[in-house]
Design a protein around this nucleic acid. Structure first.
Lengths: 238, 238
DNA sequence: ATCATCTGATTTGTCAGATAAATAATTGGA
DNA sequence: TCCAATTATTTATCTGACAAATCAGATGAT
């Protein structure tokens, strides 16, 4: 992910401030630095500063009012499932708690997603799951990125639900994998067992067996959770 | 919901354009009207127009590029769980499919949330669930808003998970209830049975019984789903 | 004729400065 | 001490300008 492809001034400001907010530099209830100070700090115009703050506002991180400045909102209003917010959080999160939290949520909706994908039985979308599975197999023998193919598998399952509200959760999965796959791989080597688990999910969905798909997904994620917990104990709690 | 409390120019533009995008006026791949046209249409400055577009960008609806304008992104990139996006979608959604989709997702994560809330066993947060339950009881006899107290109950469960990533889902619950409660109430009158179902969830969580909490939540949501399907059949499919 | 390159037009990105509106802080009077 | 008017500060909006990116068409070479 080297490509720091010269993002715009506005995005740069939004990213840095977002990172600082998620990192705890501006906790809920605090007030962000004012527009003028943002301009000075980033050597940018007020337009850029304002648009950056609007981005943070759009993600639920703060509210702005004349004279009062930008006040950080309570955590319950933060859009933790937003891709950018997840990214900012990832950079400052304590690994142990972070990955456990992500897996708890995945355990909730991914099992249901697998069940729905099986019941929906859409040929094209199931084919996409199969392709991602083949990519994972290739990646397990060194051909391709294991994180990306793994993420593609799970995202394909979400798409196969035919339910729009599952789609935004792919960002969470992506973040979780970026975190957990390298960690567990470093300790246990390539996860051939994980490939089998994914295969079981795929087969259950192909068979249109909702209950089996749900269980296969549940088993797989529980396994990952157990492995991560083991890894944490070995490396020491963060 | 009378309070159209004179939102800012920027918000006004973002709301209207967001509604139009979610309503299908600008489908994925299409290009939004340009900044100049936005200025003309809303009689606003370019600053306001640009900040509005930035909001839509922040929610994943579009990408902007010089000369190419704002291109609407594919559905998979839309932040369907964002409160504003949900609101815009609600205004133009076909009721039958919409409410079913929402319940499918709730069935996924709310059962897990109830189980987590039970295992976490945080006294303060469980007290909040109980309070919301009492508010529901009051609302069922005409004292207070049934939608708000119902939403408060479910949001309290999410908060009791101690997991930040469940919090943003409260917007989805709120939207779902605004939709389903009036619909089912109109057909079946006040839902006393629903109150019992909520009571079972509360008791399981208070007892710290994860499995029972999960099942109670599942039973309740399945019941709602069944009721909504019945209601749809009675009123005619949309 | 086909392709690459150059030129111009169009649209977003950024900057600068000014005025309006909202609200916190201060001040003055009763 | 308390309340009301005033002042100061911050965001909200507007205007106008230039920069940068990119598409479309013209130009030229092979």
């Amino acid at each position: 992910m080297a490509g720091n492809q010269t993002s715009s001034v506005t995005d740069e400001i939004a990213n840095i401030l977002g990172r600082e907010i998620l990192g705890g530099l501006f906790p809920p209830g605090a007030t962000l630095i004012g527009e003028e100070e943002i301009c000075a700090r980033f050597r940018a115009s007020r337009s850029a500063a304002r648009e950056a703050v609007k981005i943070l506002w759009a993600k639920g991180l703060l509210v702005t009012r004349p004279r009062r400045g930008s006040r950080i909102r309570p955590l319950k209003d933060w859009n933790f499932l937003d891709p950018s917010v997840l990214g900012w959080l990832r950079e400052s999160a304590t690994p142990r708690h972070f990955i456990t939290e992500l897996l708890e949520v995945r355990l909730g909706f991914e099992c249901e997603a697998a069940a729905l994908a099986a019941s929906r039985n859409n040929a094209d979308e199931i084919a996409a799951i199969r392709e991602a599975f083949e990519a994972m197999r290739a990646a397990s023998s060194g051909q391709g990125d294991p994180v990306l193919s793994d993420a593609a598998f799970h995202e394909a399952v979400l798409a196969a639900t035919g339910n729009r509200f599952f789609l935004p959760l792919s960002a969470l999965i992506h973040t979780a994998l970026q975190y957990s796959v390298p960690t567990t791989n470093a300790l246990f080597g390539h996860q051939v067992g994980d490939l089998d688990a994914h295969g079981k999910v795929l087969k259950a969905i192909e068979a249109g067996d909702s209950a089996r798909a749900r269980k296969a997904m549940h088993d797989m994620l529980s396994e990952v959770l157990a492995r991560v917990r083991t890894a944490v104990e070995l490396t020491g709690a963060a």
